[in-house]
Design a protein around this nucleic acid. Sequence first.
DNA 1: TCATATAATGTTAGCGCTAACTGTTAAGGC
DNA 2: GCCTTAACAGTTAGCGCTAACATTATATGA
Lengths: 369, 369
Amino acid sequence: MLALTVKANTSLELTVTYAGNTNATIDDVAKRAHVSAMTVSRYLNDTGPVAAKTAQRIHAAIVDLNYIPHQGARALAARKTNTIGLILPEMNDIFFFQLIRGVQQAIAGQQIDLLLYSAATRGKPDVLNLPLGPHNTDGLLVFTDGLDETTLRRLHAKQFPIVMLYRTPPADLEIPTVLIENRQGAYDMVTHLVRCGHNRIAFLAGSADNEDAVWREAGYREALAAHELALISPLCASADFDEAAAANVVTHWLATGQEMDAIFAADDVSAHGAIRAVQAAGLGVPDDIAVVGFDDALLSQYIDPPLTTVRAPTEEAGRRAAAQLLRLIEGDSAELLTLLPTEIIIRQSCGWLSSNADTSQNHPTTKPD
Amino acid sequence: MLALTVKANTSLELTVTYAGNTNATIDDVAKRAHVSAMTVSRYLNDTGPVAAKTAQRIHAAIVDLNYIPHQGARALAARKTNTIGLILPEMNDIFFFQLIRGVQQAIAGQQIDLLLYSAATRGKPDVLNLPLGPHNTDGLLVFTDGLDETTLRRLHAKQFPIVMLYRTPPADLEIPTVLIENRQGAYDMVTHLVRCGHNRIAFLAGSADNEDAVWREAGYREALAAHELALISPLCASADFDEAAAANVVTHWLATGQEMDAIFAADDVSAHGAIRAVQAAGLGVPDDIAVVGFDDALLSQYIDPPLTTVRAPTEEAGRRAAAQLLRLIEGDSAELLTLLPTEIIIRQSCGWLSSNADTSQNHPTTKPD
DNA sequence: TCATATAATGTTAGCGCTAACTGTTAAGGC
DNA sequence: GCCTTAACAGTTAGCGCTAACATTATATGA
């Protein structure tokens, strides 16, 4: 079991090797407890009555033998893996932790494992390269575009339990989905900017193929209309959720003499770019131009000035999605759509305090309307 | 498959329910390709010769049937799960992503799944409540204190492959371990502070029961000795890796007239607290007192002033640990100790630029020494 | 041409567990 | 006492796959 290897050209190196290992089976436990394997199974899964005395003997045998049921065998016999899968397109932000933590909360104490797959490091899954599916999970949580539509359709056709997160499923597929209020959040943010006294509000949109981006722009447009503000076409440009692109757009606006008193960026990253561009032009945020974002990224409270933004309940999204999936797996009904509210986080980049503190009006601090 | 439910007291709600699903088995594939199941198995696992024509037919059958091998059955028959487990004590920092990403890189393209368990949300695992182990994985990556010593010993006694991360195993257990150069990193940082011109260097230690903390303090003490600086006892206090505690200690130092020109915090969080305390006392960082940390946390480059700190190669740690584990699983030998070098990240809080830029000396920018 | 190697496939058994069924025993009602 | 009912335990079969061995086709060399 322990092998010492001396390499001639280096100093002494310690290495280990293991031989194959063996584990106690349910039959071992059964023999030691003087019952049949089936009774042990009943004891373990609570699928039938077991006399107190028998249960004690079984328990003792399990402890003595360090017995842990083999999941593969269980999955095979019971046709259930007790595992759910989470497919993420990537993993590079605190955001995903909140999501994962939510999922773990939902499965806590239920003897369910979480298999994690992130497309970023292993390539996009497709029909014949499916890392997670009916073969190793009871159901799947699919975040945004972690899974292509073909695979999604195929799994759905097999009636495999799936819950989607932050992505609307194809219109003809009845897949339960958890979404956040992108449209309403954007609408609320514009309303807040208006209340701050801004009325020439520019918009840095995200990529057109991004679902979040589309809804956020829709909310922006609706809010402008609702507040009877004209949409100034040149002031609504795409920044692709990119910091440099956002900075470029804003710099161009300023150079061409576009007038604006606020910039609403469709995400915090482009808001960051916008702030830098405004400051680089010698203007102040929020005094000359207010800048707000969307997402409440980890860094947004630390940048200068601290960013006013829209926050989504990520952890709860994970929790709710997992809960729906568990219902689906149990054969219960799940809600087709769970829409979670967003919340405006007011910091300093919107100019709320500087322009309104002196009016002494009684405004809520975090969620005005 | 789709059930519409109308709840009397609310509006129309859409819900879905799924019935059980069925999947193609290896026998279905075998029949369709007019071969035996064994040949399909050979084709899939490359465990024996299969004629080109036969392979084609099998491939076609697999595609036609959307066949994916059942992992449970595989695990049962082959006595191998093709899954590794990662046990984390918690998941609340970008740090863990780097780790996970490293692990995923190591298993990429090898048909190995990653089972994730975080103790924080599901309670510490113990002997009879083992979420990950021989029953569902081929081996385990244990980060710091994700697993208690008893369980560790039990698994090790079964010769179950384990690799530990950031934690030294009990002295009598030959468990391969991946550690970072805490001691050397701290030593290097003190050396850097000395080069910056500081010689009264305070230390904010971590908790005594934390392995990282112990080594970092050891490195600090060694470096002081090496540079013939006296250890000023009152200036070496525990801040427990806590921001508020660190701020308190520093405030107390300043209030009691302790003289120092630099503070070395054993992690970035307490460094942050130290900076705030120094600034709150009306002093400047680094001009009056330099402050440096350890870890290179995500936020450290954004705080004011940007923090000089020690960075560990987290992603590589994950990669190396997983690689060692795979070797162990294959029955190959694994290195008992992998020690990864740390790197000093010089930003502004150490006073390097302000005190040395004018000397025009040719210093490396990130890694002195 | 036939032995002999090797490529290609098939057969059998069993991995460890649980579903579905079949007993067996004890308790309670009349 | 007998029958019913439930509590409790055992038996049988098979989940889907692969290890180990057995067998057959094909190629190679003397």
